[in-house]
């Protein structure tokens, strides 16, 4: 099993849903969440995502790192906006309720509200992504992609990526150690220039091994007739069950709500200030 994404066999209904259904659901929900700036909708969607995640038995420590990275990413971006465009909220919502401060640096309710929305946007998709990545067997992704219309050659390219990431990673690690034994210093001890030079000495062998790989793997695949037919079947393909249909229907309903809100707001923004 390929553990890049932290997939594990768990006995929950989302684990038993097909990759295709989850992929479509994920794309639908994150797209509508990306478009909508309706605070109520985003909050609702985020809560729904968290509740859904509770049903999958994924433990906090499994995604703690991801969560921290996203939080750091979000904070940096929010601070940057606060510094670079402190009046952007006023501009967006068309009103101006100053809380304190003055001039360029005045802090408005609109700005805080806008940034809160942005924070929701940075965060809401994380649970969905965690569900998708942690409950779907990586082998199912390619079949799923092909099923929703991606040409099979591209879907298979994606499968190759998943297949070889661990190999490339271990190549990188081995090469790095071998180069250190040769005398390249890449730890923090060395000077910047030496470290840069050392890094290059790892990249070159990695690049050449990888280019070699492309040749041998494509031969191995041709010898087993990859690319012969217009279509291809997938060992991991699963037939749709009621579970999958309900995932799809549920997602479509949520998208419908999102669109209805877009229409009733007369745009992507939900504006409480008017």
């Amino acid at each position: 099993m390929n553990n890049l994404f932290g997939y594990k066999k768990r006995d929950t209904w989302l684990n038993h849903t097909t990759g295709t259904a989850k992929l479509v659901g994920f794309l639908l929900l994150t797209t509508i969440g990306m478009i909508s700036y309706d605070t109520r909708f985003l909050l609702g969607l985020g809560l729904f995502a968290v509740v859904l995640m509770q049903t999958t038995q994924i433990k906090y420590h499994e995604y703690a790192l991801m969560l921290n990275l996203v939080l750091v990413f979000a904070v940096i971006n929010l601070v940057m906006i606060m510094v670079l465009a402190p009046q952007y909220g006023t501009q967006l919502y068309g009103t101006r309720h100053v809380l304190f401060g003055s001039g360029y640096w005045s802090i408005t309710q609109e700005q805080l509200f806008y940034e809160f929305n942005l924070l929701l946007k940075y965060l809401f998709s994380l649970p969905f992504a965690i569900i998708l990545l942690f409950t779907t067997n990586p082998s199912e992704f390619s079949a799923g992609l092909n099923k929703i219309g991606v040409p099979y050659k591209i879907a298979y390219a994606f499968a190759i990526t998943l297949r070889y990431i661990p190999d490339v990673q271990s190549d990188y690690h081995t090469i790095s150690l071998a180069q250190q034994a040769r005398g390249y210093e890449i730890s923090k001890k060395a000077s910047l220039k030496a470290r840069a030079k050392g890094a290059v000495q790892i990249i070159l062998p990695l690049v050449f091994t990888s280019l070699d790989r492309i040749e041998t793997i494509s031969q191995a695949m041709e010898l087993r007739r990859f690319g012969r037919q217009k279509k291809r079947s997938w060992y991991q393909e699963q037939s749709f069950s009621r579970r999958d249909v309900s995932v799809l229907v549920g997602s479509v309903i949520i998208v419908g709500i999102g669109i209805a809100l877009l229409l009733s707001n007369g745009g992507r923004l939900y504006n409480p200030f008017k």
């Binding site: 082998s139 695949m221 087993r224 997938w234």
Partner: peptide, 14 residues
């Protein structure tokens, strides 16, 4: 990605 898929590869392509 797995033993099963690798054995199946030629037949999938057919």
């Amino acid at each position: 990605l797995t033993v099963a898929e690798d054995i199946a590869f030629a037949l999938e392509n057919d």
